[in-house]
Design a protein around this nucleic acid. Sequence first.
DNA 1: ACCTGAACACCGTTCAAGT
DNA 2: ACCTGAACACCGTTCAAGT
Lengths: 202, 202
Amino acid sequence: MTTRARPYHHGNLRAALLDAAERSIEELGTEQLSLRELARVVGVSHGAPRSHFPDRQALLDALAERGFSRLDATMRGAAETAGAPFEERLRATAAAYVAFAVASPALLDLMYAGKPSGDAPGSRNAAADVMSLVRGLIADGIASGVLAEREPERYAFLLFSWVRGIAALVTGGIVGRDAADELIADSVATFVRGSAPRLPAG
Amino acid sequence: MTTRARPYHHGNLRAALLDAAERSIEELGTEQLSLRELARVVGVSHGAPRSHFPDRQALLDALAERGFSRLDATMRGAAETAGAPFEERLRATAAAYVAFAVASPALLDLMYAGKPSGDAPGSRNAAADVMSLVRGLIADGIASGVLAEREPERYAFLLFSWVRGIAALVTGGIVGRDAADELIADSVATFVRGSAPRLPAG
DNA sequence: ACCTGAACACCGTTCAAGT
DNA sequence: ACCTGAACACCGTTCAAGT
């Protein structure tokens, strides 16, 4: 049996499409993503993607899903730097988020594009993922006395919004890649200083 | 001379297209914006927009341009609340930005979409607009002794990134419209507390 | 100067048919 | 179960022609 000129594809069309799609959105932007072009690149007919993704949006959702795993992994790795002091763990986690945003800006946008209140059963949202991680850090900060006793959720929203903003500035080219580290350090330092418990006696 | 059934349009096709376009991007998203649909809504042939905008992008650029004026006006109004203390002016200015983001999220995205280093002669960027305004506030904060002496640019980037992040959280539905005010107040208070000059003597 | 309408090359999506 | 290829209804853009 000879190998056909165009076999019934190379075994994993789904993954091939996702890989090609991720390259495409980062290079040309998500709006420019074309299913037909993707099919051409991967070497199948324009109807083939339909077997794996009911429509264009489904492919984008699957792309975001892969992003969740990756973002979660890098941030969790940074947050769990064993033994490091609170402020440094905070900085490392923030830096991991920003690094992801720089490496995959279009993908991150996609991850946020989903409705915040997960409608679909399998649908996640980047916000929920990041928030749960930040909550853990905050709890440590309060427990170790670095942060004043306060609703942890308020701290979490503060940090999350700040880091998201920093990522937006870097992604948008308003601050350079190196200035980002400074901005992160400044933000975390200001946060810790501004959230320190009031001196009990002097 | 009788009025024609379909006159050579109502005098200002350009403005009509922009108004219809702004409604459309906020309701359906910028990706969904269709020039042909716009022409239909406004009552002209599909080729007519060409007379005012060479292509789709040119219309989006013009839309962003209108956004700059409006954002600038509201923020400037808030920043110049005469006589108010620094922290309150800061809070009011941040609130004005977030309010704009809530009212016109798609438009704000468009304003950031432009290249940061203005390529085209008339091209502006939301970042430049906001930054110049924040710089003024910071100068006042340092002059009045509320902020420690430090590179003003660093303060400006901090504030700008934080406020942008807050706007992103509100726009994305992660925090509610009312929780936003709390988040703004918390951020500004933490900023002022964390950036206060070191007590000189005790 | 401004607008019309046909033409062109692209889309996403659907669906019967093939393997 | 997975893929092909024709068909359909949409796009943005171009351009000769009308007023």
